[in-house]
């Protein structure tokens, strides 16, 4: 029996892994639906917790939005290897010649997609719940910082979920590792959002926070490249 097998291209491996994750999510709808519902419930609770509709919470908007997104990210990232773990598929993936960094990239891209879908709901809801004054003209700027932050969340989240995957107390370890790592993302995301919501845009401040997030993403990318083989093979 002979089969034509070339040294597999990483682009094909990456596309195959992303397609697989999206197919599983489309079939089960377990992660994105849970993330969106969790985010809406959290925002609703915060709305009740912080005061009535008459109170102006505009200056807290960034913080409220990014704390909500951070907790939602923990939920999504925590589910990123659930199929591999619960259905015992991981050995099959690991015995294939896929570079471990490609595994990380595929999971990270899936998380970026899930976070983006969640934010399509969260960002408008935040405007409705908390903002008095101009908001909708800032949507583009908020979306941009959200996209950069999603990359940060995905890179750090995938690294920590990979680390937690091989521990017994993984459901406890992941938030304990991941949430502190998200603090800079929350600070920068909230700061950038604050700079463009509820008044004149402070683009200098906004740009500074975005550059900080880009730096965070680069840092975690380098950490992932340096450690991800060891996470899976050691």
């Amino acid at each position: 029996m002979s089969t034509a097998v070339n040294r597999p291209r990483w682009t094909r491996q990456l596309a195959g892994l992303i397609r697989k994750d999206l197919r599983l999510e489309l079939r089960t709808k377990e992660t994105v639906v849970a993330m969106v519902l969790f985010a809406i419930v959290t925002l609703t609770i915060m709305q009740f917790g912080f005061g009535t509709r008459d109170d102006d919470l505009t200056r807290f908007t960034g913080g409220l939005m990014w704390v909500t997104l951070a907790f939602t990210a923990v939920l999504g990232v925590g589910r990123s290897y659930v199929a591999e773990r619960e259905q015992r598929v991981l050995d099959g993936i690991l015995v294939s010649p896929v570079p471990r960094i490609v595994l990380l990239a595929a999971k990270a891209i899936a998380i970026v997609i899930y976070m983006t879908i969640t934010e399509l709901v969260v960002i408008p809801v935040v405007g409705i719940f908390f903002v008095k004054g101009p908001y909708w003209d800032s949507i583009g700027w908020i979306a941009l910082v959200a996209l950069i932050a999603n990359v940060c969340i995905a890179l750090s989240g995938t690294l920590f979920s990979g680390l937690a995957l091989f521990t017994r107390a993984r459901d406890l370890i992941l938030p304990v590792l991941f949430l502190p790592a998200l603090v800079p993302v929350i600070i920068a995301g909230a700061g950038a959002t604050h700079a463009v919501v509820g008044g004149p845009h402070d683009m200098s401040e906004y740009r500074g926070y975005c550059l900080f997030l880009v730096g965070y993403a680069i840092l975690f990318l380098l950490v992932c490249i340096a450690t991800y083989d060891a996470v899976f093979d050691d």
Partner: peptide, 12 residues
């Protein structure tokens, strides 16, 4: 099998 074909670079 499509997932594994992508991972192993199986042609056709």
């Amino acid at each position: 099998l499509q997932v594994y074909a992508d991972l192993f670079g199986v042609q056709d």
